[in-house]
């Protein structure tokens, strides 16, 4: 591990001021991602700002039924929280589909959003990687890319975002609350994550000195009829090959509103908006479902080893819609 300096920040103001003072520093919350990357030498920050003392752990159901989750709430605390279980099952399911109990106990919600890709080349500093060392190249494009993206890739990077929870939050139209010396802001989750483009090292729109303080889930009729589906190489403690989070509201047998978001296929949770459009106002008959499956994979670009993801995504969409049909 490369040596680094360290501070336990006592409050948000001091945490943000250390971030400005210490060039290249990182905030440290649960540490499950960062410490692993430190030991592998894939991250070499000169200074870490431990934010665990900040009062950002509360999970609060607001009067308007929106839910505000403090950025330092643990993944376990959120997944097992009564308001999440009853009102937002897809959030609980997506969190519990990820990692292991030990990781979920330690990992924070803010850190889950910011976790680094599992691309083998990113995590091994003996390889080139445009995300870790801009301009050095992307061996994944011609190399081992079975786990890699089929949407939104660039010539610079084809990595996927590894979070399950973020896919669930995407289907729930969550907003990210942040704070910096310039004040506070709320960012829609779809705007929060960036595609790799020419700057794959920049993964979100967060500024250098900006701290995630909370995640807000708006009150929505989607909340209850929602589901998370994950395909992976083993039945637990593995990252998604493909996943789909879905939420639906029916009017009679017809889809009144629907959200579908896919994981394991892009640099960010990938909303399947075209598929959503094909389903609006329709009953979930096989012909309608087949059109939605085709829309879900429109524009997919596959690489040598990951063409299977196209088929997996179509089948996940079909299974999700079959589950919804049973709920209608």
């Amino acid at each position: 591990m490369n040596p680094f300096g360290y501070v336990q920040a006592g409050n948000d103001v001091s945490a943000l001021s250390y971030k400005v003072q210490q060039a290249g520093s990182l905030f440290l919350a649960g540490g499950t991602c960062i410490v692993d990357l430190l030991t592998q030498g894939a991250l070499r920050p000169p200074f870490l700002i431990d934010i665990n003392a900040l009062p950002l752990r509360a999970i609060t159901l607001q009067d308007d039924n929106s839910l505000i989750i403090g950025a330092l709430a643990s993944n376990s605390a959120v997944a097992h929280h009564p308001s999440v279980l009853s009102g937002y099952p897809v959030l609980s399911e997506s969190i519990l589909a990820g990692a292991s109990a030990q990781i979920r106990n330690a990992a924070s919600i803010g850190g889950n959003l910011l976790q680094k890709t599992r691309c083998y080349y990113y995590r091994d500093p003996s390889f080139a990687c445009n995300k870790r060392t801009p301009g050095s190249g992307c061996p994944a494009i011609t190399g081992a890319n079975r786990m890699h993206a089929i949407f939104g890739t660039s010539e610079q990077c084809i990595a996927v975002h590894p979070s399950d929870m973020a896919v669930g939050l995407s289907a729930l139209d969550a907003a990210i609350h942040t704070e910096s010396s310039r004040g506070k802001r709320q960012i829609a989750i779809d705007d929060f994550f960036l595609l790799p483009g020419d700057t794959p090292d920049r993964e979100t729109i967060l500024e250098q000195d900006e701290l995630i303080t909370a995640v807000e889930i708006p009150a929505t009729p989607f909340a209850r009829k929602s589901n998370y589906l994950k395909v992976r190489d083993r039945s637990s403690y593995a990252f998604a090959l493909v996943s789909v989070a879905g939420a639906v509201v029916f009017e009679g047998n017809s889809v009144k509103e629907i959200r579908l978001s896919a994981g394991g296929v892009a640099h960010k949770p990938w909303r399947l908006q075209e598929a959503e459009q094909t389903l609006l106002g329709r009953a979930l008959e096989e012909g309608v479902i087949a059109r939605a499956m085709e829309s879900a994979v429109a524009g997919a670009k596959t690489y040598r080893q990951n063409a299977v993801k196209v088929d997996l995504l179509k089948r996940c969409v079909r299974l999700m819609l079959h589950r919804f049909r049973e709920m209608a």
Binding site: Y6, Q8, G30, L48, N52, S76, S100, Q102, N105
Partner: peptide, 21 residues
Amino acid sequence: GACTVLINGERRYSCITLAVM
């Protein structure tokens, strides 16, 4: 999971957390 300990009563991996934390 070989390094699992209880920290303030919760099971966690002790290999991916820093002692100073």
